[in-house]
Amino acid sequence: MLFAHDTECGLIAAAALVNTAGDQGEALPDVAALDAFFAEHGWSGRHEHTEAELRSVRDLRPRLRRIWHADTDEIVAIVNGLLREAGALPQFVRHDDEPYHLHAVPLDAPLATRMAVEAAMALADLVRSSELGRLRVCDHPDCDNVLVDLSKNRSRRYCDAGCGNRVAVTAYRARRAAARP
């Protein structure tokens, strides 16, 4: 583990949220899709299951996407803004059989607010440890998904949408074609 568990979860969830509005179309088309996203990423606390909540979560995505294309100073400004707007007050909490970890807003805060603050807190750890290079955009030429490289050797280049497999298959087919008489 490179970072604390809550930091890794926050980074992974932020990248996944950004990628719900990518090349593949809208991946949060309705409240049911938000419910599935909520469960998949282990969110706890308040979840209203409403169209308004869905809109507020969708509205967060462009702001988070900007982080993957920004320099350190802009990232810090975005993170500070997210924390300030939420009135974040970091505190240790324990829930859902997880050990103590940091939350900066209560579990009854709106979901979009909690998502924004969890992402901001995780990004703060990257800034403090000079690890912003772990925030990447997929190397596949037809993909604009973002990713967080949590590998030890910082070698991850492709997102979770199968781009690495597509590149490998294309290279394999090219080698096979070149080997044919």
Rank of each mutant, 00 (worst) to 15 (best):
E74N: 07
D6A: 08
E85W: 07
G10L: 02
D6Y: 10
R154C: 07
V93Q: 02
R61A: 12
L64K: 04
D30N: 14
V18A: 04
S129T: 15
P181E: 13
N165C: 07
A120E: 06
A16I: 10
R173N: 12
A174P: 09
M115L: 15
H95I: 11
H95G: 13
L82E: 08
R173Y: 09
A33W: 01
V137A: 14
G162C: 13
P99A: 15
L150D: 12
N80K: 11
A116Q: 11
L126K: 00
A27D: 05
I75T: 12
E26V: 00
A174G: 13
A124H: 00
H69R: 10
L60R: 03
V146F: 07
L60I: 08
S155P: 00
Q24H: 12
A77R: 15
Y158K: 05
C138I: 09
L111S: 00
A21G: 08
P110T: 07
A122E: 04
L132S: 01
R180C: 12
R128F: 08
F3T: 03
P62R: 05
D108S: 14
E118A: 13
A179L: 13
T113R: 02
E74G: 03
E26L: 09
E40K: 04
P99F: 06
P106F: 10
L83Y: 04
N145T: 04
V146T: 13
E118I: 01
R55G: 08
R154S: 12
G87E: 12
D160R: 15
A109L: 06
R157E: 03
G42M: 10
A112R: 06
V105K: 03
A15Y: 06
V76F: 05
A21L: 03
R166T: 03
C9L: 13
A32F: 00
S130M: 09
D6E: 14
V167P: 01
A52K: 05
G87F: 11
